[in-house]
Design a protein around this nucleic acid. Structure first.
Lengths: 221, 221
DNA sequence: TATCACAAAACTGTCGACAGAACATCGGTC
DNA sequence: GACCGATGTTCTGTCGACAGTTTTGTGATA
């Protein structure tokens, strides 16, 4: 794999996982050293991550990890709900037998994981559920766009408190989505997906609010 | 302005205007010479344009202008209709007096340009109408995303035949959108915008179909 | 102690160079 | 005449270097 691509992927992951903190400065030289390359691939990767919304460039040219903000999260989720609703509607006409079986198995797995209190696994299965539907929507530009938006919102996921009830509700919502797909009802499928994301985002946003309030309080002292 | 940014902007424009033909190869060395720079800024600009969907990279690393295709156009318009509908709905709660006046004046100008058969001006005013609404939606990630999608669909615009009737219908649709915004009706505004884009895209797609058929026929001989 | 000026250090933007891969050309073989 | 292989050319991926700018650190001054 090309160095620029590899760097972009790893750096993106590092930012999503919080290895690089929001607001932290990213020096090209440091990054080059850390990734064992020269600055050229780093610079190319940074152009990409800037476009994807993971880093921001000051007018001096310096690059920073984009800070987390409540309003940005809200806005991202609004767009995601819409786009992913559209993808779900389109997927209705494209899913094959295999996809449906896979979605079924996924929901079952998520339910079991949720029962076993393995919330990390449940979260992973949840993401896979969405990915399966998106891959089936048959609209490449939409798929790319959604991949990007999902990655951006994923940065806010680490905060999710109360995973327990979270997952249980999600399982039911996923069930509703699948049932709409099975019924070949595009309108309903779109609606189900959209309200699922809205509901899910509400919990994330609530957690984020208290998180930001706490960290503000801490920095205020 | 930075060289990379300037290059990306100019190259994008050149591709949109057809200076570089779909499918044409873009050599880094040639581009560097043409833009009077070294290869570094060119490479960074190409990363950007690839992400934006204007160029594609072969697995050998060579970069080509992305070919036009009917299915891509259809898919782009579907996404755009949805996103821009959303933006329009959000804009309802954000537009101020000045925006409304501006939209009004814009429609009047478009109508006059259409009557004078100045279709180029009409097209420009039409784009400005949309831009005003998008700028008022108050959702930065959505704005960025839409900017990108609009630029991508703009590549297909050069084909529009029958500009005449085209513009007349558009004026009325714009009027409907503005009236929904004035009435503070988000649902209606979204619907009006979405159907406007669907209707408009239908004409573009029809023109594209015959264009592609003709060029296929020509290359077949 | 706070402020300012100035020197030193760090960093970005851009460039040219080099190695290795991909491609084109041309002569040879069937 | 078509196919194939060798050879030279072109091109990309990566690197290190340099200039100019921003930032940091320091010491003098009020």
């Amino acid at each position: 794999m090309q160095l620029q691509e590899r760097t972009a992927t790893e750096l993106r992951r590092a930012i999503m996982e919080g290895v690089f903190q929001p607001g932290q400065r990213l020096s090209e030289v440091d990054l080059a050293q850390r990734f064992q390359t020269s600055r050229s691939p780093i610079r190319e990767a940074l152009v990409q991550l800037e476009l994807e919304g993971f880093v921001a460039r000051a007018d001096t040219g310096r690059v920073y990890v984009r800070p987390l903000s409540l309003t940005e999260a809200e806005q991202l989720f609004i767009v995601r709900a819409n786009l992913e609703g559209l993808a779900c509607r389109l997927a209705v006409d494209n899913v094959n037998r295999k996809d449906v079986l896979r979605l079924e198995a996924n929901i079952d797995g998520m339910e079991q994981a949720s029962r076993k209190r393995d919330f990390h696994a449940a979260l992973g299965l949840g993401a896979e559920f969405h990915r399966t539907i998106i891959d089936a929507c048959g609209n490449a530009p939409l798929e790319d766009c959604l991949r990007s938006f999902r990655a951006r919102t994923a940065r806010y996921r680490f905060i999710v408190a109360a995973l327990e009830e979270f997952n249980e509700k999600r399982v039911n919502e996923h069930r509703a989505i699948l049932s709409a797909i099975r019924a070949q009802d595009p309108e309903l499928a779109e609606l189900a997906m959209r309200s699922h994301i809205v509901a899910s985002s509400r919990e994330t946003l609530a957690a984020l609010r208290s998180f930001l309030a706490r960290s503000e309080e801490a920095s205020g002292r």
